[in-house]
Design a protein around this nucleic acid. Structure first.
Lengths: 397, 397
DNA sequence: TCCAGAGATGAATCCACCC
DNA sequence: GGGGTGGATTCATCTCTGG
């Protein structure tokens, strides 16, 4: 199968997709706000808009239901569907889901929670949206992701084995001599259904200017928990194409459909050059996005650097200037080759008048321990992650 | 009016309440789990139970709908209703609410989010419940509560005034000389609709032994935002009486109804002597439990370790066991001598059956770069902070 | 095949005890 | 006695087994 970005009506186009062929469908339909949505790109060069006005709730629900029916048909038995909505019509949509997918196949009600600028509305500040997860069958694919224990958790809770006493109450297990018994290895805490993921920053580079654009982090998490590499992801209302970008970054195949020519063009552009604001989320493997950025932060702090968020090419600046100009820093991402990282750093530093740029070569601290390579080329200084002594580097120049 | 705790059927008893007389109704009905719920008091002296089994969904929905209709009748025009539910039937219940209260009077979908012990379920760990807030009319009472700004909020954003430019984009206001303009005093961040409140702890004194007991803090917040002192609060399914206890503590009048005699007795007892758990977690916040620096966390994460907070001798454990036993890790603090750190690690590891302990010699990453000291003594392995390759260390033993 | 009941689970968090 | 550390208890659970 080939990746596709299709300009057309989602319902018509879905009818052309084979039954039982898709691993994951993410639908982010209009929320029934009864409004036009529009947003300009940050340079005001372009305005994207889509209409979320409907004759009636019934018309809206029929539109969604038809899409759900097609979705079920084309999903594999191990496939799953995520329907993204908000409080406006979430309850109605879930009733449709129960009808089409059967309430037995309901898996989770995911709450995407974010912080937001306040408004003047009476009532509580809305700061969440809802994502329903349904499997096509009970055999839907699901990969557990584990996180850290709560800081309040006692180590004994994790280490010690337990039994029940005669009253059925749980207590620590003791051997014959009265010593404690250590239990088996633990994996960590399973991911919960409340996801605290920052809303797309209004100034983020990731922001393409498309209204209702979703953070890449959110889509990456969705794709990670329900698909493997090589699986096929469909977004029938792809908008600015975040789902497809996430699929591409995570080596999944993708099909995107949108009724707006502008959206399709934007999606294609983003796919050519995916801009990612934050470090890779939930890499396949043990590490999740959090530890990655914590490592990066630790490295930047050791360098006494100002941390720059949401910039594709620069992760920070030294607090001290070099030759009266700022020194930009980039930490190589695991998804980037060294050359690629270098190119991005140079590109992003262009307007900053940097006389020195530092590229930190480190996908993984452990891999780098014995790697003593220390190249010098042009104005880019490549250092290994453990050589965190800036003054030494500067004095060697 | 007098406070009342009524033993009886909620629907019958509500019919005896005057129209337009109640300021707030909080309903925490069965969630349609189709199960019996029971729990013993901690001293095993008493068992509380209630049934959540129904012939059909329709029977359940009819029961709730009747209660909603009565609720609307007895609410004042400035009154409001909170309906507490979970994913099982939340969508169905909200459809009822839209019918009875009208969708125009929908105010908020509140997410009560909490941390919970895990279980073996496929899918994400459920860790939230939903509370719907409807006003009887648009004139419902609502008092805004403000919180602190997020630590990441730029001070300029709080202090400076804003205008819109010609394209309608917001920007900082400047006076004629181009100086920034300081805006008016801000109140803080309004309370959002996602409430992070700890689940009632199994050992908390506040726990009365009643199943599904809600935390007092949750009810206090609800009562605070929608009523004034002296207002009347009704809980037609009062269970262990948390709503009434909160009302009493906040000087509101209250009416509670329950069909279980045991529940009524418990409620009366709690009202006589309200116990509120002073949660340290709530008082100081989760951040206060985190005592590790970012660097320490980065080091532990590189080692693939579980992080341990609030232990003076152990900072973490390797996720992988060594000789079937946990491996404790300590990172030397800048205030500690190596000997001191070692002593603490050994002491704290005593009861953990560790066959190996790792002491990381590092006050400061930068200071250690050229320090190649690598001692081996007893069962304590001392490594330098940058030698973060566990497999190598283990293979050398 | 369906349902009820028994059994396993495992970390969060307040509490109580112990120096 | 006050700060720190280990213990207890829970499941608007989940899974499995047997009739």
């Amino acid at each position: 199968m080939e990746n596709k970005v299709i300009y057309g009506d989602c319902l018509n186009e879905m009818k052309n997709i084979d039954s039982n062929s898709i691993d994951l469908i993410y639908i982010d339909p209009p929320f029934f706000t009864q409004r036009e949505h529009s947003q300009k790109t940050r340079d005001n060069s372009k305005e994207f808009k889509f209409s979320d006005k409907w004759k009636s709730l019934e018309e809206y629900l029929t539109f969604i239901k038809d899409m759900l029916i097609e979705s079920k048909r084309i999903l594999k038995d191990t496939g799953s569907l995520f329907l993204h909505c908000d409080k406006t019509a979430s309850h109605r949509l879930r009733c449709l889901l129960d009808d089409v997918f059967d309430s037995d196949n309901f898996v989770n009600e995911i709450v995407w929670s974010y912080k937001r600028w306040s408004n003047g509305k009476k009532g509580l500040l809305n700061s969440h949206q809802t994502i329903y997860l349904y499997g096509k069958t009970k055999e839907f694919k699901f990969k557990r992701i584990y996180g850290d224990y709560s800081p309040t958790t006692n180590i004994d809770q994790i280490l010690q084995d337990r039994t029940k006493d005669s009253n059925g109450k749980s207590q620590y297990k003791k051997d014959k001599e009265g010593n404690i018994v250590i239990g088996k290895e633990k994996l960590g805490v399973p991911l919960t259904d409340v996801w605290d993921i920052p809303f797309l920053n209004p100034k983020a580079n990731e922001r393409a200017g498309y209204p209702t654009q979703k953070p890449l982090l959110l889509l990456e998490r969705i794709i990670n928990i329900c698909t493997d590499e090589g699986d096929i992801v469909l977004d029938p209302v792809c908008g600015s194409g975040t789902t497809l970008v996430a699929s591409k970054l995570l080596k999944r195949k993708y099909i995107g459909i949108d009724i707006s020519k502008e959206a399709i063009d934007l999606t294609k552009k983003r796919l050519e050059n995916p801009i990612k604001t934050e470090s890779r989320l939930l890499e396949v493997g043990i590490e999740d996005y959090k530890e990655k950025s914590e490592t990066e932060i630790a490295i930047l702090k050791s360098l006494d650097a100002t941390i720059v968020q949401r910039n594709k090419g620069i992760d920070g600046f030294l607090k001290k200037y070099y030759k009266d100009k700022p020194v930009s820093i980039k930490i190589q991402k695991s998804s980037e080759s060294l050359e690629e990282a270098k190119r991005k750093l140079i590109e992003a530093s262009k307007t900053k008048e940097c006389k020195l740029m530092i590229l930190i070569k480190t996908n993984n601290v452990r891999e780098k321990i014995l790697d003593k390579l220390n190249q010098k080329e042009d104005d880019v200084k490549i250092i290994n992650s453990y050589e965190l002594d800036v003054s030494k580097i500067l004095s060697e120049l």
